[in-house]
Design a protein around this nucleic acid. Structure first.
Ligand SMILES: [Mn+2]
Ligand SMILES: [Mn+2]
Ligand SMILES: [Zn+2]
Ligand SMILES: [Zn+2]
Lengths: 145, 145
DNA sequence: AGACATAATTAGAACTATTCTAATTATGTT
DNA sequence: AACATAATTAGAATAGTTCTAATTATGTCT
């Protein structure tokens, strides 16, 4: 997935986004990222810690936090906040929002309708530059979803 | 367009709106609510504490938290979360979202375009029941807004 | 390769927003 | 007034996260 040949970044990628330059892909960071890729259920830092420990028992929680922060800062993952609950982490880099089903607790990635943006529906002054946007929803999915 | 200092809400805590049913309006709760009504800049609990202390020096921070929680639970105010920052509080009960201008730090209430809902733009399964929704945006307003 | 500089990892302490505890005080009701 | 219940209070506790400082790993330059 990501290069381990001493390069800071995946060598498979033709063009490297500027944010990713300078991310040293250590084995801890690779393992954290791999855990997130393998089970995309939006785990908390503590849940990531537990999963990483299976393969890497010596890793520390501080390192998990550090790795998650590095991956967020370099744009490889997103941090997801529901109210004041512990942050969760998401590898889906496409524009999407988060929906938690109140029955199962499962967090679903939700896309926009074709060709729609969230700003289509908002009364923003013309020329506003949106740099960060977070939308979280809770509710009940219809039976049999 | 940006409704940070609008007049859509009750201006006096003396008149008891239906939302207050079952809420004992103690002088601490009235003062906290009054502070929020008077300056609608989405203060944190600690900022509310500081403002209330001017008129009520003996109030405790725990009471401010208790009052804010009671007001939220009774639907008189909303709790607003930006990322992992301290919660802020908002007396605007109309459907709106929050936009923080990264230049000034000011948080603006943002309405939906006429007849629009946020769910109009989302790819939700038919029959989904949305019970909680929070949208926060950061960015830059155009010059002269 | 070895020497060096820099960056990441680690354990544990510290931080901070918030909640809890338990005592006191206020309020509403008979 | 007496009583029951609820709110307020100070301070302790909690929990997620960040910081500190020591150690270890990595990359670069001879
Ligand atoms: Mn960061
Ligand atoms: Mn509550
Ligand atoms: Zn996601
Ligand atoms: Zn608001």
């Amino acid at each position: 997935m990501l290069g381990n040949d001493g390069e800071a970044l995946p060598t498979a990628a033709k063009e490297i986004p500027p944010e990713l330059q300078g991310l040293r892909m250590t084995k801890q960071r690779r393992e954290v990222y791999s855990v997130l890729l393998h089970n995309r259920d939006h785990p908390t830092a503590n849940e990531v810690f537990g999963r990483v420990q299976a393969d890497m028992p010596s890793i520390s929680l501080a390192t998990v936090y550090n790795c998650l922060d590095a991956l967020v800062d370099h744009g490889l993952i997103n941090r997801v906040n529901f109210d004041r609950e512990p942050s969760r982490f998401c590898v889906n880099l496409t524009p999407h929002v988060h929906f938690q089903d109140k029955k199962s607790g499962v967090i679903h990635d939700l896309s926009f309708k074709d060709g729609c943006q969230i700003t289509d529906v908002l009364d923003l002054p013309n020329g506003t530059e949106v740099s960060e946007l977070e939308l979280t929803i809770r509710g009940f999915l219809p039976k049999g979803s």
